[in-house]
Design a protein around this nucleic acid. Sequence first.
DNA 1: CCAAAGTCGGACTGAAATAGTCGTATATCG
DNA 2: CGATATACGACTATTTCAGTCCGACTTTGG
Lengths: 134, 134
Amino acid sequence: MVRLSKKVEYGLIALRHMAARPAGEIVTAKEVADRYGIPYELLAKVLQRLGKEGMIASHQGVRGGYSLARDPREIPVSAIIHAIEGTVPVIAQCLSDGPDSCDVFNLCTIKSPLTKVQANIERAFHSMTLSEIV
Amino acid sequence: MVRLSKKVEYGLIALRHMAARPAGEIVTAKEVADRYGIPYELLAKVLQRLGKEGMIASHQGVRGGYSLARDPREIPVSAIIHAIEGTVPVIAQCLSDGPDSCDVFNLCTIKSPLTKVQANIERAFHSMTLSEIV
DNA sequence: CCAAAGTCGGACTGAAATAGTCGTATATCG
DNA sequence: CGATATACGACTATTTCAGTCCGACTTTGG
């Protein structure tokens, strides 16, 4: 399968929600969760993560919440995915770095052609910004 | 994560292996499994699947095995993925048809923009054929 | 005919990733 | 102080994926 995680979907929905209203306006996690039927606790974690990555600004306390930290036109979808998942999405195991890379795949004959496809996919995610998610 | 399954990787390796030798030559599952260190039983299933989908021809019996059924230049990678996974890879849950489609995602604001990304990814897989996997 | 070498195909198990929950701490405002 | 937020880690449940096992069928060759 080639599929984004629910976390990423939720993150995109929340960010879009913020982008669709006046810049700087504060939105709470609960508000978004209720609005879109997303489990609150899970969304909260996603937003915390996005906060840590500098994608959104967090405001604690009683009138707190989150607000977009950047211009939606300058936030590519790829950055959102990366912020939430931590790792860069890699199409096939034999392309990944680190210890779990090619153990079986020393003999892997597929590696180099797949890097091209990989590049295409990354471009697809990189060329779309939050502002385009209308 | 955005990643192909092992089955697809194994399938690609096997098909490439066949494409790299004289057309019509018969190759056994065991042969490929040994050559690339792939679990035999799993590869066998993948090849069975590819056979059912008409991607390769199966030959039963003692001198049996598999052979490519089509010109490698006419087999796009997308067809291979589709044959093995059964379903079309869909980037996000809200894009899929059927019962598990939008239950939470009626309110999903992300659907239409993601279809564009989806189309890009499909194009990436569609534009590469087996013959290009050198 | 029969045995060996193949494919065919479903049921099963184990491991790992993902989704979701819970509890508690901390900050802020009125 | 008390209500309302975020912060954060530990825990559980669910699903998906990888891999295994087993029995059946098919063909070739002796």
